[in-house]
Write a protein that binds this DNA or RNA. Structure first.
Length: 295
DNA sequence: CACCAGGCAAGCC
DNA sequence: GGCTTGCATGGT
């Protein structure tokens, strides 16, 4: 079935896109800036623009937006040019019961193409943290230091620029309650502004080069760099191993025998290859839905 | 109260 | 190289 888009008043209707389920996209831990908004809808901000997205009868609606914003921002943000049916077909082609189950649970997952700067800071904040609090901290960062705009009569905030954050003191930044991560955020912003860290240059690097460059940033290690590669740089082969992935992989593929992160990474690279990041998202969603390995 | 949360840096060997 | 420990904060 091929996707079709229609303009209806100030809305964009997306028809015939079955590989898009809003809770799968926005509750699989890749994005911290979209929240549920009534039944079957989410509202959030990216690239300085806010949009409400709802679904009904297999149709997805982007509310109060323009065709320009759809073409310039949301089409790519929602990764609408990629064929996820084909990805799911390849991932389950070997008859792997684990991937079949994972894909069944998260059949509407898509990997969002998020802004690199926002992804870098968001995943620095994610370290040793939980998702509700990550969202809270990022929300405070935006409402305190981002630019405001109105959408459907309410005020929303963009993600603050490196320049805005770089000029803050640690004490001023402490209002976001980021804990020990605050110094990483400030250091990163200042080095992006000074040019010591060149995010634009990282975009055109090979994946191993980009990973090395990211890990030079204070507060970014192995796992966080893999998340940034996947969510901010479109490197779909990147397979971040966090506590959830470690648990679900050990449970499903290693008979619950504890493994090192290195072993799991190598297993995933061998098994999923170029689609590692996609597999990771299905597994992450599946693990959390079914609370696999949680006592 | 202890323990944990999408880990990481620094200090040890 | 690999292994241990401290780390801010908020929730259970």
């Amino acid at each position: 079935m091929s996707m079709e888009t229609k303009i209806v008043n100030n809305d964009i209707h997306i028809i015939g896109q079955d590989d898009l389920v809003l809770p799968h996209v926005f509750d699989c831990g890749q994005c911290f800036r979209f929240d549920p908004c009534g039944e079957n809808a989410y509202i959030g901000t990216a690239f300085g623009k806010t949009v409400k997205i709802s679904s009904e009868n297999g149709k997805t609606i982007l509310h109060d937006t323009s065709i320009e914003d759809f073409n310039n921002v949301w089409y790519d943000y929602l990764d609408l040019g990629r064929d996820y049916s084909e990805i799911k077909r390849v991932l389950t082609a070997g008859g792997d019961p684990v991937m079949e189950k994972a894909v069944e649970y998260g059949k509407g997952i898509r990997i969002l193409n998020q802004e690199l700067w926002e992804t870098v800071i968001s995943f620095i904040i994610s370290a040793s943290n939980n998702i509700p609090r990550i969202k809270k901290i990022i929300g405070l960062l935006c409402s305190n230091f981002g630019e405001s705009h109105t959408y459907q009569g309410s005020v929303y905030y963009s993600f603050p620029s490196p320049e805005r954050i770089a000029q803050l003191s640690l004490e001023e930044l402490s209002v976001i309650r980021a804990g020990f991560r605050d110094k990483y955020i400030l250091d990163c912003a200042r080095k992006v502004v000074s040019g010591e860290t060149d995010l634009e240059a990282i975009k055109s690097m090979t994946t191993p080069e980009a990973k090395k460059a990211l890990m030079n940033i204070w507060g970014i290690g192995n796992k966080v760099s893999d998340c940034i590669l996947l969510f901010g740089l479109g490197r779909c082969d990147s397979f971040p191993v966090d506590v959830w992935i470690k648990r679900v992989m050990e449970y499903c593929y290693f008979d619950s025998v504890p493994q090192t992160i290195k072993t799991i990474s190598e297993f995933a690279e061998d098994k999923f290859g170029e689609l590692g990041g996609m597999a990771q998202q299905y597994l992450f969603f599946y693990a959390r839905e079914c609370r696999i390995g949680v006592k």
